[in-house]
Design a protein around this nucleic acid. Structure first.
Lengths: 142, 142
DNA sequence: CGGAATCCCTTCTGATACTG
DNA sequence: CAGTATCAGAAGGGATTCCG
């Protein structure tokens, strides 16, 4: 398991937050583009693949599929293509039989993983709180 | 526009990253639950609403709809209900005519907003890089 | 092994119309 | 104003089959 550059990038990003009024406090044309990018990147499978690759460094297609519990081969392929197109992962095809394809995060992908790291931690820390809120909401409505 | 607690929570969370090998380096049962929670919370509209409410403090239904460019009234209602159920927002109904309903982030919601902040900044910083990667990919595939 | 292609069902999402 | 209800098209996503 590789040692990830999670702490430094996240902390430096976090520091820069203090310089801005809000995360998207910038010109409106850019804001629309940012929203679009967020929409594509804030995807369940993208986030999970990002994390698995961040943990393991480099994985083959099937290995990746096993690590990402619950994903179908179709969605794995689809998501990986999208991530490759967006510059998040590199896809290396080895000319051997049986074929071997390795996936690895690019620097861009690793930086997104680092940015998402805060959300993972949040999810772990607040699992119980969210569940409690749901129960309360459902019994009040139910 | 309220002054948000973005810097402190994000930095403290980021600091805690150094204590862990990876963001989900914990027991497998919890990991599945975390994945599920991520799947629900890593949603385009949830993220954008979270950010708009973080910036504005408290908003009425229609005001919120105007701030969230491109959302339909249906998705706005749906997403807000979900967020209310998950404990992210409070929904305050004023018994007046015409009706008035205010939405505001809870502490839980604000903390998620803080966690997402790194992703927003990432998206702003890497907009050009992603776009360039897409162009390169598309011309190569062509 | 690492896909691509197809089928088929479900969910998402926007538009429109209606209500307390 | 702040929704609910309904409909229809688009996209998401699983299962299966086939190929280099």
């Amino acid at each position: 398991m590789s040692n990830l550059p999670f702490s430094d990038p996240v902390i430096s990003r976090a520091r820069r937050i203090a310089e801005r009024t809000s995360p998207s406090d910038c010109d409106p044309k850019v804001e629309a583009l940012v929203n679009e990018l967020i929409g594509r990147v804030a995807d369940k499978w993208t986030m999970i693949i990002l994390e698995v690759l961040a943990e393991n460094g480099e994985l083959r297609f099937t290995q990746l599929g096993r690590q990402v519990a619950g994903i179908s081969q179709k969605m794995l392929t689809q998501t990986l293509r999208q991530m490759e197109r967006d510059g998040m992962v590199t896809r290396t095809v080895h000319a051997v039989v049986p074929p071997r394809v390795d996936y690895r995060l690019t620097d861009l992908g690793a930086s997104l993983g680092a940015a998402f790291c805060g959300v993972w931690i949040w999810a772990q820390d607040n699992l119980a709180g969210v569940e409690a809120s749901r129960v309360a909401f459902d019994t009040k409505v139910g």
